[in-house]
Design a binder for these strands. Structure first.
Length: 140
DNA sequence: GCCAACGTTGGC
DNA sequence: GCCAACGTTGGC
């Protein structure tokens, strides 16, 4: 199983919106960046990801699971863009703020820190464990 | 609201 | 195939 991070502006699509979709999940559509798309194409059903709120909150707020492999993005006719479906698994007991991540030397190499603009990104198992620890949340 | 960083586009 | 111009993202 691989780990990922999905970034969203809460004003556009928030954790609460994601939770409201329940186990049916929802397309992670609207991605128009090749790197991000390529990561989604690598995802398998059952992979886990962090749900990150950018802009005003800048915090990891929950854990999601990939529930459908990459397929054409229904919000465009452009065949270049694929997306996966994800569903909410559980919220973090404590949100993990970007500041905390930046301050943690074990997380210094996270893509979130290194390339803050990438909206879908891989997370290493070590980073996964550490962020869950900071969020006081079950990593599994 | 500004601006730096980065990705994409299009002219050559 | 390079690179300038432009648009977008996201942190501050």
């Amino acid at each position: 199983m691989n780990y990922w991070l999905f970034k969203s502006e809460p004003s556009t699509w928030s954790w609460d919106d994601q939770v409201a979709k329940g186990d049916a999940g929802e397309e992670w559509d609207g991605v128009r960046n090749y790197q991000a798309r390529n990561f989604m194409r690598e995802m398998a059903v059952g992979d886990r990801g962090f749900f990150y709120h950018s802009q005003s909150e800048k915090a990891v707020v929950g854990i999601v699971e990939v529930c459908a492999e990459a397929h054409p993005d229904s919000t465009t006719d452009d065949e270049r863009w694929d997306c996966v479906d994800i569903k909410a698994v559980r919220p973090f007991a404590t949100q993990v703020m970007l500041d905390q991540i930046k301050a943690d030397e074990r997380l210094a190499e996270m893509v979130l820190v290194k390339n803050s603009r990438l909206s879908v990104q891989p997370v290493t198992p070590e980073e996964w464990k550490r962020v869950c620890e900071l969020g006081e949340t079950d990593a599994n």
